[in-house]
Deep mutational scan, measured.
Amino acid sequence: WVPDSEAPNCMNCQVKFTFTKRRHHCRACGKVFCGVCCNRKCKLQYLEKEARVCVVCYETIS
């Protein structure tokens, strides 16, 4: 899990986070992404309901 303080930009597209461009943690890899790069949901083994995942993890999992 990457702390918010260590991620000033999206770890995929590099967009800078602001008050309106929020950070989202991928529940699969723990990296920090913008809403566009972390907009998929899928079922993870260790969680009961679907969770937010990044586009890279989504392609790997599904």
Rank of each mutant, 00 (worst) to 15 (best):
T20N: 09
N9Q: 10
P8N: 09
A28V: 05
V56I: 10
Y46D: 15
V2L: 04
V56Q: 14
G35C: 11
H25I: 04
T18I: 03
T18F: 06
A7T: 03
V56C: 06
P8L: 14
C38E: 02
V36M: 07
R22A: 08
V56R: 07
D4M: 12
F33N: 08
P8C: 03
T18K: 11
F17D: 02
C37I: 00
L44H: 06
A28W: 10
I61W: 06
V15K: 07
P3D: 12
V53K: 06
D4P: 03
V36S: 11
M11Q: 10
Y58I: 10
I61R: 13
R40Y: 13
C42R: 11
I61K: 13
T20K: 11
C54Q: 01
K16P: 12
C54V: 00
R40H: 13
V53D: 03
M11V: 15
M11H: 08
C29S: 02
C37V: 01
Q14E: 15
A28N: 12
C54E: 02
Q14F: 06
C37Q: 02
V53L: 06
P8H: 12
P8F: 15
C42F: 10
L44M: 06
S62I: 06
W1R: 05
S62Q: 04
V36F: 14
C38A: 12
Q45Y: 06
T18E: 11
K41N: 15
F17N: 01
W1C: 05
N9D: 14
Y58G: 15
P8W: 06
Q45R: 07
V55P: 09
A28K: 08
C34Q: 01
H24C: 06
L44I: 08
C29M: 01
S5T: 08
A7N: 05
S62E: 02
Q45T: 07
L44D: 04
A7D: 06
V32Q: 04
K31H: 14
V56F: 13
W1A: 02
F33K: 02
L44E: 04
N39E: 05
H25G: 07
Q45N: 11
N9T: 14
R52I: 15
A51S: 09
D4A: 02
C42T: 14
P8S: 10
V15Q: 11
C37H: 04
C54W: 00
Q14T: 12
N9K: 09
C57W: 00
C38V: 06
F33H: 05
P3H: 08
F33T: 05
V32L: 06
S62N: 14
R40S: 14
T18H: 06
F19I: 13
K16E: 15
K49H: 12
Y46A: 14
N12F: 05
R40Q: 14
I61M: 15
L47G: 07
Y58V: 10
K41I: 13
K41D: 15
E59Y: 06
V15N: 07
R52K: 10
N12R: 07
Q45C: 05
R52T: 10
C54Y: 00
R27I: 00
T18Q: 03
C38K: 01
T20C: 08
M11G: 12
P3S: 12
E50W: 04
R52G: 04
A28Y: 07
V56P: 08
K16T: 14
P3E: 15
W1D: 00
G30S: 06
N39I: 10
N9W: 13
T60L: 07
C10N: 01
A51P: 04
N39K: 11
D4K: 04
C38R: 08
Y46H: 13
W1I: 15
S5W: 05
K49F: 13
N9H: 05
D4N: 09
E6S: 09
C26S: 01
A7Q: 04
K43R: 12
K49G: 12
Y58H: 12
C57H: 02
C34V: 01
C38M: 04
Q45G: 09
D4V: 04
C38P: 01
C34S: 01
C54T: 01
A7H: 05
H24W: 06
F17G: 03
N12E: 13
Q14G: 09
R40P: 06
G30A: 05
F19V: 14
V15T: 10
G35R: 11
K49I: 07
R27V: 01
Y46I: 10
C10K: 00
F17Q: 00
Q45W: 07
K41G: 10
K41E: 15
R22K: 05
E48I: 04
G35V: 12
P8E: 14
C37P: 01
C34F: 01
R40C: 13
T18S: 13
V53H: 07
L47R: 07
C10F: 00
A51H: 07
S62G: 12
F17K: 02
Q45V: 07
Y46P: 15
A28R: 11
V36Y: 11
F19C: 14
F17V: 02
M11K: 08
N39Q: 12
H24V: 06
C57Q: 00
C13V: 00
V55E: 13
L47Q: 13
T20S: 10
K21Q: 15
T18Y: 03
C26G: 02
V53G: 05
R52C: 05
